[in-house]
């Protein structure tokens, strides 16, 4: 068992390394790096550009740049963003908790709204109501995060100005204010994700309910309720977890956009702004932070899934 854990961690580290290489090379090898922006249009003489590049260390061979960057990274030093001249590490570290909080709230909200709908739709899948829900689910799923967010902004700014805050307060500074600020964005994200959660829950549960062992339990006379909650849900949870990877893609996308719409200083917003400014040093660190979280979650989910559902464990060998 321990071997499996170590194997997974190594796998994840490998992916991380590859991703960092990939991302770093994209950022460094494309033309139009920052040297032009720093010298400004007037000062863009040959000498100046060369000087700026030397300062930034951009004239060294690629591998050297990459390796030194990795080396610094492991020590927590990502250098300074040439545009803001602040340490990248500080900015990113400050932004991460915001995004995590938003994502967490959004996910919880989505589950609270979406899971019961999904369970209901699965259990009543044959009835008219169930079919109706299924169609509506597709509609729910289709409303993109920015539309939801935008809708909320729209309505709240017109009709509920008190909920619409434009200044962000950190959770560490003031809990109440923080929650007030986070309310709308979390709501937006929850609504966006609820559709996906409901759909996934419904599909997984339907599959589980069709398994022979459920029929057996029913034949034994177990009440439907017990069957659903004790047995089927367990198997379904595994499937849901597995699809969690897919879900996570939506979460990241949704978070990024919601942060933009509501101007929250999270990683997503940071990343997009950085890319817009062509500040790739900052951008790739932000990207890597998200990737790390993603990998951690994925590995954790995979291992947990194996633990909960023996079928997966046995399939692997």
């Amino acid at each position: 068992m321990i071997y499996r854990v170590i194997g997974r961690i190594l796998e994840a580290l490998g992916v991380l390394l590859l991703v960092s290489f990939f991302v770093f090379s994209i950022a460094t090898l494309i033309p139009g790096d920052l040297s032009l922006q720093l010298t400004g249009v007037d000062g863009a003489t040959e000498e100046n550009i060369m000087r700026v590049r030397a300062e930034l260390g951009l004239d060294r061979p690629f591998i050297e740049q990459y390796l030194s960057w990795i080396w610094n990274a492991t020590q927590g030093n990502f250098g300074n963003s040439p545009l803001t001249n602040r340490a990248i590490l500080g900015d990113v570290n400050a932004a991460l908790p915001v995004s995590l909080q938003l994502a967490l709230f959004g996910l919880i909200g989505a589950t609270i709204v979406g899971a019961p709908i999904g369970v209901f739709a699965a259990v009543r899948s044959s009835s008219r109501l169930g079919q109706l829900i299924r169609t509506n689910l597709i509609v729910l799923l289709s409303v993109p995060s920015f539309v939801v967010g935008a809708l909320l902004v729209f309505f709240s700014s017109r009709y509920f100005p008190q909920t619409y805050r434009s200044l962000f307060i950190r959770i560490s500074d003031n809990l109440m204010e923080n929650l007030k600020v986070m309310f709308l964005p979390s709501l937006a994200l929850s609504l966006t994700l609820a559709g996906v959660v409901a759909q996934v829950t419904r599909n997984a549960l339907i599959q589980e309910l069709n398994q022979p062992y459920v029929l057996t339990a029913r034949a034994y006379g177990f009440s439907s309720r017990k069957v659903v909650f004790t047995y089927a849900l367990r198997g379904a949870v595994v499937q849901i977890l597995t699809v969690g990877a897919l879900l996570f893609g939506s979460i990241v996308g949704g978070t990024v956009i919601t942060e933009r719409v509501f101007a929250l200083p999270g990683i997503g917003n940071l990343m997009v702004t950085a890319i817009g400014n062509r500040d790739f040093n900052l951008a790739i660190v932000a990207i890597l932070y998200v990737t790390v979280v993603y990998l951690i979650l994925n590995t954790f989910i995979d291992l947990a899934a194996e633990k909960i559902d023996p079928r997966i464990r046995n399939m692997k060998s």
Binding site: F22, I30, G253, V256, M271, F280, N298
Partner: peptide
């Protein structure tokens, strides 16, 4: 296989943002 796994390991939006940002 390795390349595919790496690319699949990134949330899709981020991949697109990165590429569009670069290009």
């Amino acid at each position: 296989v390795i390349l595919t796994n790496v690319l699949l390991g990134l949330p899709s939006i981020m991949l697109a943002i990165l590429v569009v940002g670069v290009l």
